[in-house]
């Protein structure tokens, strides 16, 4: 009785392995043949060429909070003020901020993370540091943004 059960288990296990093996082989053949067909069809590399010269869309930075709707009136005022400044003033201004994120973004992050009082103090601290005589050895320079990296700590 025990021997019979053992035999059944072994054949079942073998069956599973065989099925798995066949499945993997068939899948590999399909993938390989598909890739060969794709290569033959796109021998000029149009799939790669089609993504060149992609124009970057410049969009004005908008306020992003932790949730969809503002938490309270203060957050609503902060969001409106930030969006108004970014749309009507910052868009007509020279890129003069030496830091990344910019002073306005830094201010929003400071208010979000540290509250009204510490956020206000952090904003003034940042504004006082943002000038052409910035201490370069104190900040990490981000070559992609061409600005010094100074997030809210």
């Amino acid at each position: 009785m025990i021997q019979k059960t053992k035999k059944i288990i072994i054949t079942r296990l073998r069956g599973i392995n065989l099925a798995k093996y066949i499945f993997h082989t068939v899948a590999a053949i399909i993938v390989y043949s598909g890739s060969c067909f794709a290569q033959e069809k796109d021998k000029y590399g149009f799939n790669e060429l089609n993504v060149l010269f992609h124009a970057h869309k410049h969009e004005t930075l908008k306020y992003t909070g932790n949730r969809e709707k503002p938490k309270n009136e203060m957050e609503f005022l902060l969001a409106v003020g930030f969006n108004f400044y970014k749309t009507f003033f910052s868009s007509q201004d020279n890129p003069s901020c030496v830091f990344h994120p910019s002073c306005s973004s830094y201010s929003v992050h400071a208010f979000q993370q540290k509250g009204v009082i510490v956020g206000t103090l952090s904003t003034f601290d940042r504004l006082s540091r943002c000038h052409q005589f910035v201490k370069t050895n104190q900040y990490f320079y981000d070559p992609t943004k061409q600005r010094f990296y100074d997030p809210v700590k």
Binding site: F89, S91, Q92, D93, N94, S96
Partner: peptide, 10 residues
């Protein structure tokens, strides 16, 4: 200067 030059550069 800031907003005049910023405007034409923009």
């Amino acid at each position: 200067y800031r907003y005049y030059s910023g405007g034409y550069r923009s």
